[in-house]
Design a binder for these strands. Structure first.
Length: 612
RNA sequence: CGGGGCGUAGCUCAGCCUGGUUAGAGCGCGUGCCUUGGGAGCACGAGGUCGCCCGUUCAAAUCGGGCCGCCCCGACCA
């Protein structure tokens, strides 16, 4: 492509509405332009990148047995109503009516459509397993679109759906996709982690997220410093060592299949041991302190000149109608996903003012020294008083005093207060005391961009939509499904996010819009011009993808554009053509090499191989 | 939806607080000259409903109110 003819509008200045680097650079380098909040035009360079990403995805999806289809973007409401998601998905779905007043939604995902297709066509176990995928526009009316392509309202996604006759076959399909995804992200050249993730409302057996590490990312994860454990903070378990005794509450809960009684039996000895430790220590005595109008943890910590880590707070929830009083360290937050699982609760919500009043609890000053009245009320309602694992990280903490304007310092577990049990229900932060639930080594907290997500769906959709097949034994059974997504446009942003420098984007060869950026420094110089033209033709003949800067601009202008756009190899035809030499610059390292004209193709070829 | 910020030329912004000729700059764009190894220089030129509406005023980019749009933080997020 000749730049003199190309539509590549580059900018000298950062667009004012861009915050993250990928957004700034993709706009400046002429890859995208905003249409409206969360909606983007993808310009020729961006389209090239998107196509390359799509093709890599296709290659491995096909290799692992998936077949490409195209489903409509416009989807009828009946299917969503049938699966129960018409209301669950709610405002995130863009809904509209046709001229006959029938309801439709722009597809945010296609489980319903594809399940409908399959239930009509798949009748026998002989038709299974099957895996279908598509690459297309998706629509989600995000509450707050942000960071350019990272969270857009319309975006390009690859979504695949597998159908199997039983759990085992479904698992095989799932792990085929797992492997395919690894190959895809490896080939794209992303630095990513595969993390255990929450299955969300889908409620399947397992789920993995593929996350590109980047500070601008919205996914938070915990990664063990030693073993392969890596999980989203949505589900990350926390371990702790108490006098070298490992304690991983969530693992123990899982072992006893979330039977709270059995759990308490199992952790009894550990907590006994902890109690002994505390007793041996000469910890300061509790002390009531006056804290007028200090209701938040920030306020209290500041007022008492304590670190947030030395305070504790209370959260009151209602789980299936039962009041749940939770104490946790002031700098931690309740992870509702973990709490819900730990309690095997179907419904969970924060308590309202009414319940607090009923339990005689003073908002902002709740502590573990509860009145007899409160204790009885909680018991009566079959509630629980739970300490989060974070309470074990400090021997004494400052809690509310259960009366307005007072807190109590130096409260020590067992010595001063009692809890029904200790659970792991806070969101992991990767702080020092937190240990890997698998090997008890220290963990790191990292942020990343979710670029892929795979789910084992089970029969969630096949049951709701009655997608069955007749098995070998003649019995009708539900199809076992999996679904697998990759954010194509998000990958474009994520790649930039982890590969750029002060001059612009640095594309990996695999998804670069072109492989070679040929620059004619001074097209008015006849020799430079003719050699550049010749090189351009010959490079194209040899099958290279070339962006040729033939514009009559000053050299600096063209160099700046080239660095900004970020094509991996620059071939610079300049004044050294007098000695039959041109320069080859590798964008990533900014290293320039002078190369004899007759060796140029060999050199380019070698450089490309090196970059692969 | 709550909190904060912004909206003036294609882009990035100044002017607004303290109302008053013809609304400015840099970049970009057009023409010419000059220049050709890191976003040059000179000259001339085009380009604006100061987001929209209402109000205050002799007079509004400027003050007040409403609306719209965009960005950030939060809540939300199969």
């Amino acid at each position: 492509m000749r730049m003199s003819k190309a539509f590549i509008p580059t900018l000298k200045e950062d667009p004012k509405d861009a915050e993250v680097i990928s957004h700034k650079l993709l706009v400046r380098a002429g890859f995208i332009r905003k249409v409206s909040s969360g909606l983007y035009n993808i310009l020729p360079l961006g389209t090239k990148v998107v196509e390359k990403i799509k093709n890599i995805i296709r290659k491995y999806m096909n290799e692992y047995g998936a077949q490409e289809i195209i489903m409509p973007i416009m989807t009828p409401s009946e299917l969503w109503i049938e699966s129960g998601r018409w209301n669950v998905y709610g405002k995130e779905m863009i809904k509209f009516k046709d001229r006959h007043d029938r309801d439709y939604a722009l597809g945010p995902t296609h489980e319903e459509v594809v399940t409908d297709l399959i239930r009509k066509e798949v009748k026998s176990y002989k038709d299974l397993p099957l895996n279908l995928y598509q690459i297309g526009q998706k629509f989600r009316d995000e509450i707050r679109p942000r960071f350019g392509l990272m969270r857009a309202r319309e975006f390009i996604m690859k979504d695949a759906y597998s159908f199997a006759k039983d759990e085992n076959e479904a698992k095989e399909e799932y792990f085929k996709m797992y492997e395919a995804y690894k190959k895809i992200f490896d080939e794209i050249g992303l630095n990513y982690e595969i993390i255990e993730a929450d299955t969300g409302e889908i409620g399947g057996k397992f789920s993995h997220e593929f996350v590109v590490l980047a500070d601008s990312g919205e996914s938070k994860l915990i990664k063990c410093k030693q073993c392969p454990y890596c999980a989203s903070t949505e589900i990350a378990k926390i371990g702790i060592k108490i006098d070298d005794i490992p304690f991983v509450p969530f693992k123990i809960l899982e072992e006893v299949n979330f039977d709270l009684e059995k759990y308490r039996e199992k952790v009894k000895s550990i907590l006994e041991k902890y109690k002994e430790t505390l007793e041996k220590e000469n910890l300061p005595q509790k002390e009531e302190v006056y804290t007028p109008n200090q209701e938040t943890i920030e306020d209290v910590a500041k007022y008492l000149n304590l670190s947030k880590e030395d305070t504790a707070k209370a959260m009151v929830y209602i789980a299936d109608g039962k009041p749940i009083l939770i104490f946790l360290r002031g700098d931690y937050e309740v992870n509702e996903i973990k709490l819900k699982r730990a309690l095997k609760a179907k419904e969970l919500s924060l308590a309202d003012e009414k319940l607090l009043k009923e339990l005689s609890l003073e908002k902002g000053y709740i502590g573990p020294l509860l009145s007899q009245e409160t204790l009885e009320k909680i018991k009566e309602k079959q509630g629980l008083i739970i300490g989060d694992i974070s309470l074990l990280s400090k021997k004494a903490l400052c809690f509310g005093a259960n009366k307005k304007d007072y807190h109590i310092k130096n409260l020590v577990m067992f010595r001063d207060y009692k809890l029904d049990t200790i659970l792991d229900i806070s969101e992991a932060q990767g702080k020092d005391w937190e240990r890997c639930p698998e090997c008890l080594a220290n963990v790191n907290f990292k942020k990343g961009i979710e670029v892929g997500h795979i789910f084992m769906l089970g029969d969630r959709y096949s049951k709701a939509m009655n997608a069955t097949f007749v098995d070998r034994d003649g019995k009708e059974k539900y199809i076992i499904m999996g679904c697998y997504g990759i954010g194509v446009t998000r990958i474009m942003a994520a790649s930039v996010e982890q590969s750029f420098d002060k001059d612009g984007i640095i594309w990996p060869l695999s998804i670069a819009p072109y492989q070679v950026h040929l620059i004619c420094v001074n097209p008015k110089d006849e020799k430079q011009k003719s050699i550049a033209e010749e090189l351009y033709k010959e490079l194209l003949n040899r099958g290279y993808e070339v962006l040729y800067d033939d514009r009559e601009e000053r050299p600096g202008f063209k160099f700046k554009d080239a660095d900004l756009i970020g094509i991996p190899i620059q071939v610079i035809v300049g004044k050294k053509v007098k000695n039959n030499k041109v320069e080859v610059k590798v964008r990533k390292t900014q290293e320039k090499m002078e190369v004899e004209l007759d060796k140029i193709f060999e050199y380019i070829n070698n450089t490309i191989n090196m970059l692969k």
